[in-house]
Amino acid sequence: MPMAANEIEALIREGIPDAEVEITDLAGDGDHYAARVTAESFRGMPRVKQHQAVYAALGERMGGVLHALQLTTAAPAKE
């Protein structure tokens, strides 16, 4: 059974409490999503570590229930 976008968003927010999360269903099938995750806690963290933090928040669902996730991560722009 595919995951709903709001489930993905909730898991990411639970694992990364300061995250702003945008989820887009790329294929309309509930299996292929894009996620843009912005979090102050990412500041100074290499992109690979940012992605690993998101994957850790998703746990075993990534590659299982959630088939594909196009991921963009960043720290918020400084004002």
Score class of each variant (00 low, 15 high):
Ala75Asn: 04
Gly15Phe: 06
Met1Arg: 00
Ser41His: 04
Asp25Arg: 10
Thr24Gln: 15
Glu7Thr: 15
Glu79Phe: 08
Pro46Asp: 09
Thr72Ile: 00
Val37Glu: 03
Ala74Leu: 02
Met45Ile: 14
Pro46Glu: 03
Ala10Glu: 08
Thr24Cys: 06
Asp31Lys: 13
Ala34His: 09
Ala5Gly: 11
Tyr33Asn: 13
Met45His: 04
Asp31Gly: 12
Glu14Cys: 06
Leu71Glu: 06
Val37Gln: 11
Val65Met: 12
Glu9Tyr: 08
Lys49Ser: 14
Thr73Ile: 08
Ala5Ser: 15
Val37Phe: 04
Ala57Asn: 04
Leu71Pro: 09
Arg61Met: 03
Gly59Arg: 00
Asp29Thr: 15
Arg47His: 01
Glu22Lys: 05
Pro76Val: 10
Glu20Asp: 10
Val21Tyr: 05
Tyr33Thr: 12
Ala57Thr: 07
Gln52Gly: 01
Ile16Leu: 04
Glu20Asn: 05
Glu9Trp: 05
Ala10Gln: 09
Asp25Ile: 15
Glu40Arg: 05
Asp25Tyr: 04
Met45Lys: 13
Arg61Ala: 05
Thr73Gly: 02
Pro17Thr: 03
Ala53Ser: 14
Glu20Arg: 00
Arg43Asn: 07
Leu69Gly: 11
Val21Asn: 02
Thr38Ala: 12
Leu58Pro: 10
Val65Ala: 12
Asp31His: 15
Lys78Trp: 10
Leu58Ser: 02
Arg61Lys: 00
His67Arg: 13
Gln50Glu: 10
Pro17Met: 03
Asp18Thr: 02
Val48Ile: 13
Thr38Gln: 12
Thr38Ile: 15
Ala39Tyr: 05
Pro76Thr: 12
Met1Ala: 04
Ser41Phe: 01
Asp25Asn: 14
Leu26Tyr: 12
Thr72Trp: 02
Leu58Glu: 11
Glu20Gly: 09
Glu79Val: 05
Glu14Phe: 02
